[in-house]
Amino acid sequence: MKNKKKKPDPVVMLLDFVIVVMIFVLIAVGFRLYFYVHLTTRSMKFSQDASRMSFDLSRDDYAALIEGKYMNTFNGNNDAKSYHVLADYVEALSQYKIFSKKGYDEKALEQKTKMDRSRKEMGDLSVFADKADVMFGN
């Protein structure tokens, strides 16, 4: 049996090189695609996770906290439940101040009930509820 060493085909070598290059191109394009699809999917949902809501809270952005609660609720995202409860508390507190000062007793009582209920459910975040009480002069 002949054991002749075959000369490599330069075209095949070139094609192999192109395949290697294409693998890198596909990886790069794949990452780019993943990034944008991920970004789009996330932006479609409008919802916020607990870390985002914690960040809002760290910046005293209670308006964003309330927005996050509503958006999460509408999108079926219940991951940040304790933050939702705190947002409920702040919203009720802000409304309570209006109704009690305007003498709308029934509506004020309704908000007070919501506040009391939220207080019981918020756990460690009650420290922020205390802070909100001070801010709203409750």
Partner: peptide, 17 residues
């Protein structure tokens, strides 16, 4: 095949980016 896949991905990326 790889070029076709890359082209499709680039078109989708262009749409999403």
């Amino acid at each position: 095949i790889m070029a076709a896949v890359a082209a499709v991905m680039l078109i989708i990326t262009g749409r999403y980016s």
